[in-house]
Design a protein around this nucleic acid. Structure first.
Lengths: 78, 78
DNA sequence: ACGAATTGTTATATATATACAACATTTCGT
DNA sequence: ACGAAATGTTGTATATATATAACAATTCGT
């Protein structure tokens, strides 16, 4: 199972699913499936999403659960 | 289409396809398909491969063609 | 409070990734 | 030079990702 930070990243930029879907060239419902964890993106889609958010793939998708970004930031400040 | 550096990385470590396949938990022929570009790995497999090689996904898989590692190293030395 | 946009969900169809088997060809150790 | 391991390739079967449609529920702008 692959965990993802799509909902947070999308929310942070105030994007609708449709807007994100258009940006990476997939159907808007595909984004919904991904956010709900119904399935994982293909590698190609993952790379496009990483490109769009300008983040490494690993910061968006992970084999182990993500810490909430808020926590991660606090931890980093020690 | 996704480009990949699997053949180089595997060769560099003197691994057989079977050894790599076992390490990431897939059939050895799946590695063959990937190296030949017959299809792309799932995101899950890509993350496992990145973990195995201890490299970011983007250094193994890319939407744009890779420069040969040898060239990339020379370019970096300028 | 209204309508419009967004989201959640279900269903169907197609494309793609993976497993597995079988076999020919190539490479490698001794 | 021999056998063993590794590779390339083809075919079949199954699981998963994506597109699309349809609709109910929710959120948002005005």
């Amino acid at each position: 199972m692959v965990h993802n930070r799509l909902p947070v990243l999308r929310a942070e930029r105030g994007l609708s699913r449709k807007a994100l879907a258009d940006a990476v060239g997939v159907n808007y419902q595909t984004i919904g499936y991904l956010e709900r964890g119904d399935f994982n993106p293909s590698l190609e889609l993952a790379l496009k999403l990483a490109g769009f958010f300008d983040l490494p793939v690993e910061m968006i998708f992970s084999l182990t659960p993500f810490r909430p970004l808020s926590e991660a930031i606090r931890a980093e400040q020690e």
